[in-house]
Structure formats: structure tokens, C-alpha cells
Write a protein that binds this DNA or RNA. Structure first.
Lengths: 162, 162
DNA sequence: CTATTTAGTAAACCACTCTTGACTATCTTC
DNA sequence: GAAGATAGTCAAGAGTGGTTTACTAAATAG
């Protein structure tokens, strides 16, 4: 293959690759979300790892070991994250009445407010996206994305032979 | 707001948030891509940061300083990444004929093959996605994603007031 | 020609994220 | 009630992904 042909392929791939656009969009969106959350909560120590913790914490509280299992990392690592979030006032540890060894990690009052702010942000972002894409395209986009995630999670044949 | 109402909001937000699905999809896709690239190239030292380097390297070669500017990090940091890629045999440094101080970082023969494998992977993935979504939904998905990225990059009003 | 800027390198250092191993306290099982 | 499993903590440390400061060699402006 000539260099020219190769270059053409390369440029086309760069311009067209859905995966590439997906990566970049996710990265930009994530960065914006963190920046906005930091500003709204006034908590500059907040990092992406902390927000990754949020969706795994049940409202009634979740044990450290359970969190570690859900996130796929060691309980020591989760422990440190939780400790930092407690320091910021977003989480609290309460004894688990069902087990004297265990503690439940749950949102503090302030943490619930922060969570609300985050959800409000995601909701507002979605609204603005819908305004620009139009409702039907937005719905189609959401459905396709959901399907993609489902395939990534549950369809090993997607990568078969690669 | 009652706890029940809050829980309902939370579950709904978790299930519905396009942003959340986007994050998760991007992360899974990225992990799979790295794993596959590692396997195909037989290079276990390959990390995500290395692949992040790829799209910034022009075929004719790119100076370290230019790479650093494009990636938004220090040239020393890029230098280390490049050094590792040279060690793996994917990149090479050649003197820049237009400037005796400068060197051009470019793909080695092996690196070009690796790049091909990567592009082939993305292409194949896209094909399989299209098979499952159908051509029209795939095209709509791609367009919406492109629009989203464009907004994230060039439309500051998207986050106005958040 | 000299002074300044620029390309790249070298070394020290730092924050972050995660791991391993050891330990205490409590629970469960038999 | 003893033995083993489990929840959480503590301490040390490894790997990653950067930064800053200082340097050299070459280019460029005056």
C-alpha cells in the first residue's frame, strides 16, 4: 500500500470512527461534569474517582466490602476514597445493626444535596441535548447507546476473533 | 422530599441518564480495545496513554514539542511516553532535516502495522455494531454523537448557568 | 558576532490510585 | 466454646502520569 492510500485510510478512520468520537465525548463530558460539581459544591478536592463511588452507594447504606466488590478494587482502596469523602462531608459511616463488625457507608445530608445537584446537572444537560437534537433523535440516540452498553457488557461475541 | 421519592428519582436517574451510559460505554470500549491491541501486538507493556499518543502523530513525523502542545502536557512527559513506544518498536525518532535540534517522532514499520490492526479493529467493531443496530440507526447514532462532540467542544452555552 | 529563543534531555520529585500483608474485632459453624 | 471466616483498619510500597528545574545544542534576531 502506498503512503498516500494509507494516509487516506488514516484520515478517514479518524474522521469516521464512532468509537473515537465516543471516547472523546465521554472524556469531555466527564471533565465538564467534575468541574461543574466542584464549583457547585465548593469542594475542590473532589476528583473523578470520588464520583465513581457515588452510583455504588445505596441510599440505605452499603458496606465497604460490598462497595469494593461492586467496583472491582480492594476494600483498602475503597476505604481511602470513602475516608476522603467523609472528610469532605458527603458521606458518613454508621454501624450496621445486623453485624457488629460492619459499618454502612451512606450519604450524609450534605452528600444527598450534592447528589441532587449532580442529578440536576445530568438532567439539565439531557434537556439541552434534547433541545438541540430534537426529541426523536435524542430518544434514538439514547436507545442506541443503551444497546451498545448492553452489548459491551453481555455480548462476548462482539469481540470474537479480534 | 421523602426518602421514597428520592429513591425513585435516584433509580430513574441511574437508569435513564444518557451521560452515565456514555461514560460506562466509553470505559468498557476503551478497556476492550486496549486488551485486544495488547493481545494482537503481543506487547503487554502497552497502556492507554500510549494509544492516546497515536492520533497526534502525523505520518510524516511530528516533533516532540508539537506533540506536547497537541496533548496539552509537558514535553518531558511526552518524551517518556515516546521513549517507551520506541522501546516497544512502534515508533522511531529521525532527525528533522529542517532543524538540527529537532527530531521527528514517527511510526516505525511495525508501528504502522500496529496502527493498521487498531484501525481494523475499530472498523470491524463498527461493522458489528451496524449489524446489530441496522444501518439507519447506526448512521443516526454516529451523527448524534458527532453533534454532541461538536457541542461539547464548541458550544460553551451548553453548560451556561450550571 | 552576540544575545536570545527554541528543541530536546536529564534528574528529582510529587500526587494519585491501587496492592499486599498483617492485624483486631466480631460473627458463624460445628 | 473453639475454629475458622469475615468486616474493617493500618502501614508500607509499587506503578502511573505527570511537574519543575536545570542543562546542551542549535537556530535566529539584532
Amino acid at each position: 500500500m502506498t503512503t498516500e492510500a494509507f494516509r487516506h485510510d488514516l484520515e478517514r478512520a479518524k474522521r469516521d470512527s464512532t468509537a473515537q468520537i465516543l471516547f472523546k465525548s465521554a472524556r469531555l463530558l466527564n471533565e465538564s461534569a467534575i468541574a461543574i460539581l466542584r464549583r457547585r459544591t465548593g469542594e475542590s478536592r473532589l476528583r473523578a474517582t470520588h464520583t465513581a463511588l457515588f452510583p455504588h452507594i445505596d441510599l440505605e447504606g452499603t458496606r465497604l466490602t460490598e462497595l469494593a466488590a461492586r467496583m472491582g478494587i480492594s476494600k483498602q482502596a475503597v476505604g481511602q476514597l470513602v475516608e476522603e469523602m467523609v472528610g469532605m462531608g458527603f458521606l458518613e459511616r454508621v454501624p450496621d445493626p445486623r453485624d457488629g463488625r460492619a459499618k454502612l457507608v451512606r450519604f450524609s445530608e450534605e452528600g444527598r444535596l450534592g447528589l441532587f445537584a449532580g442529578l440536576a446537572f445530568l438532567g439539565e444537560l439531557e434537556t439541552r441535548l434534547t433541545e438541540r437534537l430534537g426529541p426523536s433523535r435524542m430518544q434514538a440516540f439514547h436507545e442506541s447507546l443503551t444497546l451498545l452498553l448492553d452489548m459491551l457488557e453481555h455480548d462476548p461475541s462482539l469481540f470474537e476473533g479480534l
